[in-house]
Design a protein around this nucleic acid. Structure first.
Lengths: 347, 347
DNA sequence: TTGAAAGCGGTACCAA
DNA sequence: TTGGTACCGCTTTCAA
């Protein structure tokens, strides 16, 4: 039994197990047992310890606890997204949080802004915090950065874009195939001059969707005209400007395939600006709130971020639990949601 | 090509400072100095240590480091939101993240779902992790839960809703005043029968907005008819159902004031369903993406979640740095954005 | 069932 | 400038 520290000392400091032990008149190990709900402590001592815990307002220190723990778990995983505030990312976040909660695990969430340097910096501090694992939407040129987590021996699961390590899992959708379907869909309504608007071509998803566009054109027996292909549109305004430019060109497109959420919205603004929303067809990649309330309602290729996140999280926790099976690549299906804008026929 | 880590690789110990010290032929304390970039180490030793760090792929352990550190800082703050995936919450999240980054601090973000019990559980695990502070959107009946953080001596900043502790800061908007402005705005266009649709009345913001509705009606010299006041609409479908019911009633409202994002969308669906969107006025609380592309475009009371988040984070970091001035209550202004739906006159 | 002592990976303090 | 040693708050090991 240790000596009782002076009262002022306890209130100045945070109460420790030692303090609880002293007050309860037991050893620090017994306190540890009670706090961790280990069996084999007499009910009487449990009672005494719990009273001391309440009296001193003792709060367990996970940080110290993990230090000596055998499994070295921190019950924390990292989450590296493009931008926590973007709807797709935050839907992923939420789905992952739900799975994490079942494993009593907290999330350290960060935005990489698709910047490999920023990604690396975050990965480094996550490694220093000894996270149990990482779920990441990798940046275009992410490479060494995520290595910090790997060399820790912690598992990584890639979402939305394929793994950049051979030994890591990934959860993605078939962007290329879905995009080709979107293009063929509009071709079926007679369109031959279908424009492509996409964001940063260095991003895997954007590149795949462009390839899908090319595929779809080929299947429909149509020629790709580079004049009506615009990539690297990284925000709504750029997308709008590009769309307006195409609409004002000598031989404007009669249909648009937009490769991402914000690009779709930019195209919409351009169409409305020219009062062409009921004459020019549009299919967008990614669903968005209110797409069904617009006039016309917007036909989209919808992903299921909740399912992507859930699958990724479950994969990660399986790895954390010791699953050493071969790396997996899970493909979550997409759906073409027909609402009107994609079914505007060629006049 | 690498394979998934083999068992012995997983159990392999990570390099520690001791290992680095041994390899570099210096004391562990010198390694600590180099790793923490403390001044007063000869360039030669710095070089030797850094080489050993690279060779052993040493990763600093923040967890262990914090344990002995004088300031007991973890460089981690907690963030407790309604739901990380809702646009308002995630915009807050992003703004807070930016400020946190300047302080080299990571965020443990969680969703409370406005459930006090869930809130308490999260607060407890955050306390056990010894976060440096907490930014919270409190649940309706949150009380004891957040106490866990307070008794740790860590600062708490409340956002969107007022502090439930007298000694904590808060960052909010004047919901009541803004709501009253919205109602008066429509009254100016001749409306006398203005309905109120709101979400969970137990949530402070919802209650305030209802009071503002009552205020606005009074200022406009109008009577509040309880028949056209519907609260506790907690999702889009409920809001739509309530709105449709009102529209189908014997004396339907000629204008709607909707107290929250999803409620606004529900009302919109109802109006479109009845083809009344160009005849019934609507002002919603909270702006949303695409509000300007709808027909008519939607007039809203816009909050600035980025500014709310930034203010809250700056306040928190000031407290963490030792600011002990009196608790503050910061009010961020709102703006009435006129777009069309709120200016539909009474026929 | 309970406790003493060693140790987890670092930092603080002080001496050399 | 460098290093030795106590120690942070807890878990582990092993003895009582």
């Amino acid at each position: 039994m240790t000596t009782l520290p002076k009262k002022e000392e306890i209130t100045r400091r945070l109460a420790t197990m030692r303090d609880v032990a002293a007050l309860a008149g037991v050893s620090i190990k017994t306190v540890s047992r009670v706090v961790n709900q280990e069996p084999g402590v007499s009910p009487e001592l449990v009672e005494r310890v719990m009273n001391a815990v309440r009296l001193l307002d003792y709060h367990h220190n996970t940080t110290a606890s993990n230090l000596r723990r055998a499994d070295q778990r921190t019950s924390t995983i990292g989450l590296l997204l493009d931008d926590v505030s973007n709807p797709f990312s935050s839907a992923l976040h939420r789905a992952i949080e739900e799975v994490a909660r079942e494993h009593d695990t907290l999330l350290l969430a960060s935005s990489s802004d698709q910047d490999a340097e920023r990604e690396e910096k975050i990965a480094l501090t996550l490694a220093a915090r000894r996270i149990d694992g990482l779920i990441v939407v990798p940046t275009p040129r992410s490479q060494s950065g995520l290595h910090h987590i790997q060399s820790l021996g912690r598992p990584i699961v890639f979402v939305d874009r394929p793994a950049i390590f051979h030994d890591a899992d990934s959860v993605i959708v078939d962007n290329r195939y879905s995009a080709s379907q979107a293009v063929q869909h509009m071709a079926r309504y007679g369109h031959r001059r279908i424009a492509f608007l996409g964001d940063n071509h260095a991003v895997w998803t954007a590149a795949e969707r462009y390839l899908g566009y090319v595929d779809g054109m080929a299947v429909a027996g149509l020629q790709v005209d580079p004049q009506i292909v615009r990539q690297d549109l990284s925000n709504i305004d750029m997308a709008q400007a590009a769309a307006e430019e195409l609409l004002a060109s000598p031989i404007p497109p009669t249909a648009f395939f937009t490769g991402q959420n914000l690009v779709t919205i930019g195209a919409l603004r351009a169409l409305q600006h020219h009062h062409l929303q009921h004459r020019v067809a549009l299919v967008g990649f990614d669903d968005f709130l209110l797409a069904d309330l617009l006039a016309p309602a917007i036909t989209v290729i919808a992903q299921d971020p909740a399912q992507l996140g859930k699958a990724a999280a479950e994969l990660l926790f399986a790895r954390i639990a010791g699953d050493t099976s071969l790396p997996r690549r899970i493909e979550v299906p997409t759906a073409l949601i027909v609402r009107g804008s994609g079914e505007i026929p060629l006049l």
